[in-house]
Design a protein around this nucleic acid. Structure first.
Lengths: 335, 335
DNA sequence: TGGTGTCGTCGAAGCGCTTCGACGATCGGG
DNA sequence: CCCGATCGTCGAAGCGCTTCGACGACACCA
C-alpha cells in the first residue's frame, strides 16, 4: 500500500501538497495537481482512513441504528437503510450499522471511540432513553421519528397527522361518512412509537373537523386479530363504508377478511392503506395509499446530518408532507 | 475526550502500560491493572478508533455487502444482516454496510483505505465480477453463496442440494410419487444466483435416485405467473400430489391458487416450502418447510471471517446441512 | 518603484495509539 | 550462591495523514 509520501516522492512534491490536492483546501497550480493526480493513479494510492481520521478528526462515517426485531415492518426498515446508505455515499460517507438492541451503550461506544461523525437513529420511542445519551455526545444526531421531547436533537419523519387527514379527506371527498381506522398492534402503541399516536391524533382531529362518524381500533397482525378487529368495527360502526389501514402486516389479511365477509373492495367498502408504495402495489388489488416515503425520509436524514456537520442551519423538526395516490381500492360511496 | 496519556498520568504509569492493560498482550501486575482500570473508568476513556487502526493496522470493522433491490427476499436479507451484526459484536467488531450496487468499486474503496479488516459478501452470482476483485484485496473475505469458481475465497451457505433432497425424501416417505418444483423466477436463474441451480440439481438428482415422477418450473411471483406455473404443472404432471416451493415471494399466491383450483392442502396436495422459519409459520397454514437458516449462515460467515483474521485454519467451502420441519402442509398421500 | 496581497509550495508538528527493545527486579535451578 | 529466565514496566519510534505557519515569487495599486 503506497502512502502519501510515496505519492509525493513520485510527483516530486511534498506530502502536504498531495494532501492539498486531495482536499482542495489550498490552491494548487494546475501543473502540480496533474502531476500529483497522475502519481496517485499510477501508484493506486488510497488514503488510510484511520490516519485521516486521526489527523483530521473526521471519519466520513455515519452510524445508523436500526431496530432488530421491530414492530416496524422489515421492508420499511430496509428502505430506510438503503436510502441512508446511498445518500451517504453521495456525500462521500459510509455507514456503520448498529442495532437498536445494543441500546445506549452502542451509541456511546461508536461515538466515544470516534468511529463516526454523526448518528442517525430509527424507531425512536416517546421517552426513548437513548435521546439523553445522544444529547451528551459530541457528535450530532438525527432521529427518524419524533419523541416526546426532541429538544436539542434534530428529527425528521413523515407528517403522520397530515397523512391521516389526507386519507380522511380523500374518503370524505368520495362521500364516505362512516370510516374506521385499523391501527397498528397494541404493542406498537404501548412501546410508544409516536407515529402511531400521531396518526391517531390526525385521524380523530380531522374526523371531528369534517364531522365524520369514525372509530379507531388497534389490530394484531394475524388472522384472529384481524377478524376480531373487523368484528368490533362492524358492531360499533354498522354500515361502515371505508377503512383506513395503518398496519402493514395486517393489510393483506384485512383485505382477505373483508372479502370473506362478502364485501367487495371498493364496491362495498373503500380501503386506504398507509404503507410504502410498492406494498400498496403488490396487493391483490392496487391500493389507494398514503405513501410512507422511507426513501425520502432516509435521504433527508442524511442531508440533515451533513448540514449539522457543516454547521449549516437546520430546522429542528422536519415533517414531510404526505402524498395520497388514488388507485383501485377506493371509490365514491355507493347509492 | 481523555487520551491514553491522561489515563497513564492519572494512574501513575506510562502510556504503554495502559495499552498493555487494554490489550493484555503483556503481563501486568494486578495492582497496576486495577489502578489503570480505575483511571480509565473515572476519566471515561475510550480509545480512539482511528489512532488504534493506524498503529495496529486493525480496524475491528467488517464490511457487509447486501443486495439493494435484489430478487433475494427482503426479510432474508435483513436476517442475514442482523445476524452478521450481532455475531460481529460478540467478536468486538462493528459492521460497515455497503450496497451491492456500488459493485467492485465499493469493495476496493473500503479495503484500500483500510476501513475494514474483512469483507462479507451476500448474493454472489455464478461468475460474479466482484470475486476477482476480492481475491486481489489484502483483506480476507467470506462469501454467502457459492460461485462457479470459489478458489481462493471462503464460502458459506445452506446446502441447497441437500435441501432439495430433504424435501423430496420427506414427501416420498409419505408416499408421494408425482412431485413438482415451483422454482424462483426466471430472472433469478438468469442472474446466476447459484442457490437456485443447486436446488434444482438436488431436486432432479434425488428425484432420479428415488425413481419419482417430477418436473420443475420457474415461477414469477405474481398472480398471473403463479397461475401459469400451476397450469403448466397440472398439464405436464396430471395428478400431481405434492409441490415443493422454492420461491418465497410466490409462496402465498401458490397456496391461494391451489385452493382456488379446489384442492386442499394437505388433503389433496402436500406442500413443502423452502423459506425461513417465520415465513413458514406466518402463512394461513403452518407449512412444512426446509429452513433457510439466515441467522446461522450469517453467524457462520462472521465466525469464518474471524478465523481468517486469526490465521486459524478454515474449510474453503462450508455448506450447512438443511433441516426439514414437518408442519401442517404435508400429509401421507390419500388413498 | 515600494509596499501589500495573493498564490503555490514546503517543512514540521502533531493526532492517539501500539509495539519493540531495554532494563531492573524477582525467582528457580544447578 | 550465581546465572539465566521470566515478570513488569518504561521510553521511544513510528503508523499515515492533516494543518499551521512560513516563505519565496509574483502581481497590482498607488
Amino acid at each position: 500500500m503506497p502512502t502519501i509520501n510515496d505519492v509525493a516522492r513520485a510527483a516530486g512534491v511534498s506530502p502536504s501538497t498531495v494532501s492539498y490536492v486531495l482536499s482542495g483546501r489550498r490552491p494548487i497550480s494546475a501543473q502540480t495537481r496533474e502531476r500529483v493526480q497522475a502519481a496517485i493513479a499510477e501508484l493506486g494510492f488510497h488514503p488510510h482512513a484511520g490516519a485521516r481520521a486521526l489527523a483530521s478528526s473526521r471519519t466520513n462515517v455515519l452510524a445508523l441504528v436500526v431496530p432488530l426485531r421491530a414492530d416496524v415492518s422489515v421492508p420499511v426498515i430496509m428502505q430506510f437503510a438503503t436510502a441512508v446508505v446511498t445518500a451517504s455515499r453521495t456525500h462521500n460517507h459510509d455507514v456503520l450499522l448498529l442495532t437498536k438492541d445494543e441500546g445506549t451503550a452502542g451509541l456511546e461506544r461508536v461515538a466515544h471511540s470516534t468511529m463516526v461523525d454523526a448518528l442517525i437513529v430509527m424507531d425512536v420511542e416517546r421517552d426513548d432513553v437513548r435521546i439523553q445519551a445522544l444529547r451528551n455526545l459530541k457528535q450530532p444526531s438525527v432521529l427518524i421519528g419524533l419523541p416526546e421531547d426532541p429538544a436539542g436533537i434534530v428529527c425528521v419523519d413523515l407528517d403522520f397527522e397530515a397523512a391521516a387527514a389526507e386519507a380522511l379527506r380523500h374518503l370524505a371527498g368520495h362521500g364516505h361518512r362512516r370510516i374506521a381506522l385499523v391501527g397498528p398492534s397494541p404493542a406498537v402503541y404501548k412501546r410508544g412509537t409516536t407515529y402511531a399516536e400521531r396518526f391517531l391524533t390526525g385521524f380523530t382531529t380531522t374526523s371531528a373537523e369534517l364531522g365524520l362518524e369514525t372509530m379507531t381500533h388497534p389490530c394484531e397482525p394475524d388472522r384472529a386479530g384481524v377478524r376480531a378487529c373487523l368484528a368490533d368495527i362492524d358492531a360499533q360502526l354498522p354500515g361502515v363504508t371505508a377503512l383506513v389501514v395503518h398496519n402493514e402486516e395486517a393489510l393483506r389479511l384485512v383485505l382477505e377478511e373483508v372479502q370473506a365477509s362478502g364485501r367487495r373492495v371498493p364496491a362495498d367498502i373503500s380501503v386506504v392503506a398507509v404503507c410504502p408504495r410498492d406494498v400498496a402495489l403488490n396487493m391483490p388489488l392496487p391500493l389507494t395509499s398514503v405513501d410512507i416515503p422511507a426513501h425520502d425520509v432516509g435521504g433527508l436524514a442524511v442531508e440533515t446530518a451533513m448540514k449539522l456537520l457543516d454547521g449549516r442551519p437546520t430546522e429542528p423538526v422536519r415533517l414531510l408532507p404526505p402524498t395520497l395516490v388514488q388507485r383501485e381500492s377506493t371509490a365514491p360511496i355507493a347509492g
